[in-house]
Structure formats: structure tokens, C-alpha cells
Design a protein around this nucleic acid. Structure first.
Length: 269
DNA sequence: AAAAATACCAACCGCGTCCCC
DNA sequence: CGGGGACGCGGTTGGTATTTT
């Protein structure tokens, strides 16, 4: 039996999102929360299917998204997690607050995979490739890769075969340096989480925030700025003009002004 | 300077799972 | 319990940006 399409696609818009659409979706969700994705586009006045709206929100508009390239530490963690979890991108993403599964998946496919291959490791099994497959100029290529890296990869990732049991014990914290960083993040997380909980509660957004990233979600203090983010599909990356309520939320340096915003939102209902 | 190749990433598609009736 | 709707996930595609020739 054939599955019904998630929505009636006749007359629905596809392709890159416009600023106006982003604006509508963002404003709607921030003010109403998400109860049913299927209804979101209708209620928000968008000619998109709910699925598309969900994706856009999760991968681009969510206020807690962390922007910018992956750090070496993050890359190493991805490699380790991938060796344990395989292509379960959402599970992997759950370990990276503010990162999306799509983002991690893209990063894996475009960069990490290549690095592993250059290191003579099979990206799927994380085990050494057959001798004849990498008997060429691996060393040279690695050097080349290092030189052409964008400054964040001064040394190659610490890639080693993962002992499942040991890995489980140490989780993804493999070095003191990493541990410190993670602990720092968790501390930040706890502080911000308190504020964010209030916000989620007031907007009835707890359902989506508490899905798979609930225990690991940190809300980076420098994470969200649509004005700084580049959207290739938009080309010129213009500044966004949000309605006041959204403006105030997007211009946070963190969630410092959250309570005022919440107060506003609550009273505007 | 132009064309070609490569890299990157947002968005789509289809399937599996969950949950409600 | 089974059917069907909605959501979430992972694979893939397509467009744009960047680099190389």
C-alpha cells in the first residue's frame, strides 16, 4: 500500500527559502510554538509543506544553532562517535549541542571522510584500508591536506581503532583538553538551560527541545546571528528585518535578555 | 580572464517508526 | 490489534562558491 504524501504538493513552493519565508516561519514558531508541523505552514501563511518548514527550522532558524566550522576537537569526537554509532547522524548530533544532524552529515561526507581515507582508514569501518588501495602517495596527500587546511587543523586527528567498552567508559572525552572543554560547555549549558527552559515553557516549545538533544543541549552564547550567517541560496546575505518580538530574540548575546523577551511574549498572547 | 573542476551545504525524497484512533 | 497520519532520519541531489588549470 502506497504511502500518502505528507502534504498536498500542488501549489507548494520548493527550493531555497526567502527571507520573507524565514521571517514568517520564525515569527510564527517563536510566538506559537510547534504542535503539528503539518499545520505550521498553513497557520504561518507559507506555501511550503510541513516537512520543509521543519527542516528549515531545525537546520537553519533554530535560535540555539551553533554556527561556524567544526573544531578539531569536534571532528575527533565525530570520528569516534561514528566508529561506535555508524551513520546515525541524529545520535551523533545529540552529542554536539547546537549542531544539526544534517550539518554533521555534510561535514562527514565532505571533509572527514576524505581525511580518514588519506590517513589510510576506511571511513565506514574505521579500520586500515587494504594495502593496495592506499599504496600511493598517502603521506604526500596528508601533507598537502594539512597545508591546505583552514587553520583549524594543525595536527591530524587522533584516529585510533575504538575499543567499544573503553569508549563507553570514557564516552567521547578522550583527552584532558577535551574534557575541560566539554565541562566548560556543560557549565555554560546549565546556566543557559535555566533561562531557556523558561522560554520553552512559555512558548510551549518544550516538546521539540526535549526530543533527542534534551540532555545535551547547550545554548551557545555566540551561536545565533542571522545577519552574520551566510546563506548561499540567498546570495547577497542581506540583513534580516524582523518584527520587534523576533528582533529582540535574535539579537541576543546569549540569552541574557531572555526574561524581558519572555515577559513581552507572554503579555502579547 | 575564462573555463573546468572541485568543494560545500541547503534542501528534497522516501522509508521507518511512533502514536493515536 | 491494525490502519493510517505525522514525524524523524539518512541518503541523495542540485545549486552556488571557490579553486585550479
Amino acid at each position: 500500500m502506497g504511502r500518502q504524501p505528507c502534504c498536498d504538493k500542488v501549489g507548494l513552493k520548493r527550493g531555497p527559502w526567502t527571507i520573507e519565508e524565514d521571517h514568517k516561519l520564525m515569527n510564527f514558531i517563536l510566538n506559537n510554538g510547534i504542535h503539528c508541523w503539518r499545520m505550521v505552514p498553513k497557520l504561518a501563511g507559507l506555501l511550503r509543506c510541513g516537512k520543509s518548514c521543519r527542516l528549515r527550522w531545525i537546520n537553519y532558524l533554530r535560535p540555539d544553532l551553533k554556527r561556524g566550522g567544526f573544531t578539531e576537537t569536534e571532528e575527533n569526537q565525530i570520528i569516534q562517535l561514528h566508529s561506535r554509532l555508524g551513520n546515525r547522524w541524529s545520535k551523533i548530533a545529540a552529542h554536539f549541542p547546537g549542531r544539526t544532524d544534517n550539518e554533521i552529515k555534510n561535514h562527514w561526507n565532505t571533509r572527514i571522510k576524505k581525511r580518514l581515507k588519506l590517513l589510510g582508514l576506511d571511513p565506514v569501518t574505521h579500520k586500515p584500508l587494504e594495502q593496495n588501495e592506499n599504496s600511493g602517495d598517502v603521506k604526500d596527500e596528508i601533507t598537502l591536506e594539512s597545508n591546505s587546511s583552514k587553520g583549524q587543523e594543525e595536527r591530524q586527528p587522533e584516529v585510533k581503532s575504538i575499543d567499544e567498552d573503553n569508549y563507553a567508559k570514557q564516552d567521547f572525552v578522550s583527552t584532558d583538553e577535551t574534557r575541560n572543554e566539554v565541562e566548560l560547555t556543560l557549565d555554560e549549558t546549565n546556566d543557559l538551560l535555566n533561562n531557556y527552559d523558561i522560554w520553552c515553557g512559555s512558548l510551549d516549545m518544550g516538546s521539540w527541545m526535549n526530543q533527542e538533544t534534551n540532555t545535551n543541549t547547550s545554548y551557545s552564547s555566540t551561536s545565533f546571528s542571522l545577519e552574520n550567517s551566510s546563506n548561499p541560496s540567498m546570495g547577497e546575505s542581506p540583513s534580516l528585518q524582523w518584527v520587534e518580538s523576533v528582533d529582540s530574540m535574535l539579537s541576543w548575546d546569549g540569552f541574557n535578555h531572555l526574561e524581558q523577551d519572555l515577559f513581552f511574549l507572554e503579555n502579547s498572547e
